[in-house]
Amino acid sequence: MQLLATDTLKQLPAAILPRLIKLFMTTTPDLITAIQQAAVKNDLVVMAEAAHKLKGSCLSLGAEQMAAICKELQEKGEANDNTGIHEHIATLSSLYPQTLEAMQTL
């Protein structure tokens, strides 16, 4: 699985890419925070929702690894299973800057 599936990005009109990346840059931290806060409160449904939302952004921009973790978190949240979610969130947080970097160097 790629950190960033460039094929997906190439499907998009080149003109909007900078705007999308900027949006990704501004919306993702909020979502990660939401996931984190929900996880701390053990509010797994909310966490699943936030993870789902982030998953949508990540999929659209080809951020496959982040999307996979979001999916995992969403599924765990929906199944009310909080095992290992903090590790997942930590990985997600560390993947974010790398993914953004990959987008910007595209």
Binding site: P29, I32, S94, Y96, Q104
Partner: peptide
């Protein structure tokens, strides 16, 4: 520039996370 960019993204991202606390 390349090497700075990666941690910078981290800094900016984490700052945004911090802003939500």
């Amino acid at each position: 520039s390349h090497e700075i960019r990666t941690p910078m993204n981290g800094v900016i991202g984490m700052t945004r996370l911090l802003m939500n606390t």
